[in-house]
Amino acid sequence: MSEESDVDPVDASGADEPAVNISGGEGGGGPEATFDPGAADTRAERIVDRLGALYWQKTYGGQDAFTCLVRTILSQNTSDVASQPAHDALIERYGPDDASSGRGAASTDSNAAADLATALAEADRDAIAETISSAGLYNQKSRMIQEAAEWIRSEFDTAADFDAYVKASDPGTVREELLSVHGVGPKTADCVLLFAGGREGVFPVDTHVHRIGRRLGIAPADADHEGVREALETAIPGAKCGFGHTAMIQFGREYCTARKPACLDGPEACPLADQCDRIGVDLVEETVVDPADAD
């Protein structure tokens, strides 16, 4: 079912992450979220409020569901630095005709040119792999993307119909449907629900969120990705899950990295020092282990 991995994106790509999280910020969709940091009911909510003030405070939704699905598949096991150009190249080659931008689908069929799912389902898989080669694992990802496109054509007819389904249907049902698709794991399904569906209470867990939730002590130290997701979605109000997800990713890139969290340079180096249990981090010995391996 899932082709997702716990590999740290920086380790997988060898490149630094960008200064901003491409999946969030101004491009995340939706209006600005409002909240009162002084009214948090749980430590997890206080942490998200702090992160929201540090980075961004947006609600999410409004992205096209199939495009979001493709973008998230491309991001698996790699960094935004590598996956974003692959996504742009794919849309440039197979996206709907747009006379103003010069973009057009590879197929000459007018229906295929009007629908990304149709264009990708009918495309040569080797050509898709070549187009997304910067994202890594391009043969595997080209298969996932094409099979997802074929699934959408079979089940929903068009990408637009799939988008309407994601936005209007029960989120639990949508999640189950997405998880039935080869290459779609929990994080990918949750990203589609969040960024395309705009569903409150969805907190996708990637390798950064998995590490930080357990290191902070707001999720069990031995929790798997689903366990961290359940802990965060239980403790954090639904309206704050979207920006909590993107801001926690950015915090993991800038401060709470896997090998050298900022707290090793002293509590003043981390904006969450007073809220963190530092599970797996020994400030005296200056060592870091996975929270599940901590004493």
Rank of each mutant, 00 (worst) to 15 (best):
A33P: 04
E17M: 07
G52S: 06
F66A: 03
S75W: 02
I47G: 08
D41T: 07
A53D: 14
A33M: 06
Y55L: 07
G25Q: 05
L69A: 05
G29M: 13
L69N: 09
R50K: 14
I73P: 10
T72C: 12
G24L: 02
E26M: 07
N21Y: 09
G14K: 06
A65G: 02
Y55F: 13
G29Y: 10
T34I: 03
V20F: 10
I22R: 13
G24Q: 05
V20N: 07
A15H: 14
Y60C: 09
C68A: 14
G28D: 04
D64M: 02
I73T: 03
A65H: 10
A15V: 15
R71L: 09
G29I: 09
A33H: 04
L54R: 06
E26T: 15
D41I: 06
A44T: 00
S23L: 11
L69M: 14
E45A: 03
T42D: 14
V70E: 00
C68Q: 12
N21G: 08
D16Q: 14
F35S: 01
W56F: 14
P37D: 02
A15I: 06
D16T: 09
G29F: 13
E26W: 05
G52L: 04
A33T: 01
T72N: 04
G24W: 12
E17C: 07
G14H: 09
A19P: 15
G38K: 06
A65Y: 11
G38V: 04
A33C: 08
N21K: 11
G62V: 00
T67L: 06
P31T: 02
D64T: 00
T34W: 05
G27I: 03
V70D: 00
F66D: 08
L69F: 04
I47Q: 01
R43M: 03
G24T: 15
G25R: 10
